[in-house]
Design a binder for these strands. Structure first.
Lengths: 118, 118
DNA sequence: TATTGTTATACTCTATAACTATA
DNA sequence: TATAGTTATAGAGTATAACAATA
């Protein structure tokens, strides 16, 4: 397992679940289908994923109209998301510490350039 | 599918198969278990992988001692490996072209630093 | 008609267990 | 006893198909 996935696993989360929590935090009442479009998760896989988060009382579904549900964080989900973000920034710092200091700015610029154009 | 995997798929190869071809080219008569250790492929998965390459007449197994087989490229495997390497360098060039020219040297230095220390 | 959410299912990749043959 | 290779199988992760309810 890759290092970040291993750290998230220690929080009881799969990478996709951690991503969904962060998206919900940043976009209160976003619907499952919108999350799926944003993260590239097909709706057939969103359903059981959200059910798992709901069963752990991390998120709650609020009916928006008759067919779509807006997602919001429950208190436990809010604190867990905070821990997720700490894990991710710690992981990024670990990686970046291996890059010689003189290269770091250009390195990050390069990464972002590749990310944004893909 | 990620872009490089899609390009390799056009050659009828999975990423692991392409890696094995390149390792065999660089290490004639390397054994299956040594390839597995080098690439992190468990031996249970090496067996069918090599069988697929053998059935396509890309590699041949030569008995080394009674239990291990050295792998070598057949002519078709040699030419296909050349195409694999072209695909990979083209892919790397595509990615690197998105990085501003002034960042490229530092960017590659950073990538290598992270790779080597992991 | 199109969209949301759901279930069932299939496929790929990778891992473990158990085994044979050989060193 | 350890290693090379093989087979069978199980587990993730992700994909498609078909469907009900709603817009």
């Amino acid at each position: 397992m890759i290092a970040l996935a291993h750290r998230l696993d220690a929080l009881g989360l799969r990478p996709t679940e951690a991503s969904v929590l962060m998206v919900v935090e940043a976009n209160p009442n976003i619907t499952q289908s919108d999350i799926g479009r944003l993260l590239g998760i097909v709706s057939a896989n969103m359903a059981p994923l959200v059910s798992r988060l709901e069963e752990r009382d991390l998120v709650e579904r609020t009916p928006m109209d008759g067919r779509s549900h807006g997602l919001g964080l429950r208190p436990g989900g809010r604190s867990l998301t905070a821990r997720v973000k700490k894990v991710i920034t710690a992981h990024e710092r670990t990686l970046l510490s291996k890059v010689p200091a003189s290269c770091r700015t250009a390195f990050m610029t390069g990464l972002r350039a590749i990310w944004e154009e893909s």
